[in-house]
Simulated assay, not measured.
Amino acid sequence: MKIAIIGAGAMGCLFAARLALSGNTVRLIDVDSETLEAIRTRGVRLDMAGQVDQIRVPIGLAEQLREDIDLILMLTKGSATRAAIRAARHLIAPQTRVLTLQNGLGNAALIAEYVDTAYILQGITTIAADLRAPGVVHGNSQGTIQWWCCTGEEDPWMKKLHEVLIGAGLTSCPDSAVESRIWEKAAFNAALNGLCTLLDRAVGAVGEHAQGKDLIEEIVSECGSIAEQGGIAFDRPRVVASIDHAIRCQADHLPSMLQDRRAGRATEVESIHGALVSTARKHHLRVPVLETLYRLLAMGESGVA
């Protein structure tokens, strides 16, 4: 399969390496000059539980790519979705599908401004990855990829994508309830990523204190109320259990939001916390813990490029 991955951060590089190593034609797209130079010079270095691979993956700006593409995989921050898909719209041929595994809410709707909804797939991944330097990623293969077509209907093409992901050693889980999974992942990120970033601590540190556990449950509960008000099924115990698992098994992991904050980059606070708070306000719901967390995180964005 010919695949263009937009966003060469931790997840973009992880997917690029795994998909290229399994025989697919992969192209990375990014706009950061340091990232472009590093990957052009040294390729992508992926360390997955001690299995180290160094692989050359072509990278460039979207406008520099002029090939027929079967799949565009969106892995940018939510704040960059509209600009990224607009820059890559010349790559969208009649056979091209677009899969978003981005964090946050509303990414598929932004992509739909440029792509027919019938050709958009959306989902989440629970794979954890740390970006140690541009093009240098430490990750694991324990997580899953849950995804489905945005129309809610099963597309025969999905079988091909499932086989490609499995062939790359990734755990692909087509899931018709993907809308719920996206909301549950947003709650996971709102609680764990948000608190880790605010406290400047790795995942394990947040779960060491009773106050942290209480805050996590309150944030997840508020996110669930927002989802349910919009008619989305939301499993609170499953989200809390997922966070507990991350605290136990990925204690040293630095969430991407914290990695961005430490590096002086803009975070995903608007596409995660901001989107949740905005939706709550539309439904006239009170979410005091989530709103306070959002305001504190947004204050930390001041002056960030």
Rank of each mutant, 00 (worst) to 15 (best):
A4V: 15
L19W: 13
L19C: 14
L36P: 08
L36G: 11
R42K: 11
R45V: 10
A49Q: 12
G60Q: 09
G60R: 10
L71I: 11
M74W: 12
L75A: 12
L75K: 06
S79C: 00
R82G: 00
I85Y: 01
I85C: 08
A93Y: 13
T100F: 05
L101C: 05
A112M: 02
E113G: 09
G123W: 00
T125G: 07
T126C: 12
A128W: 03
A129Y: 10
A133N: 12
P134L: 00
V137G: 06
N140G: 14
Q142G: 15
Q142T: 08
Q146M: 06
S172Q: 13
S172H: 07
P174L: 12
S176F: 00
R181V: 02
N189K: 08
A190V: 06
C196D: 00
L198C: 00
V203I: 11
L215T: 08
C223Q: 04
S225N: 03
E228V: 04
F234W: 07
F234T: 09
A241Q: 08
I243F: 02
D252Q: 13
H253S: 04
L254G: 00
L254H: 06
P255A: 03
P255I: 01
L258M: 10
R265K: 15
A266I: 12
V277H: 04
A280G: 14
R281P: 07
K282F: 03
H283W: 13
H284C: 10
H284N: 07
R295I: 01
R295N: 08
L296N: 03
M299Q: 11
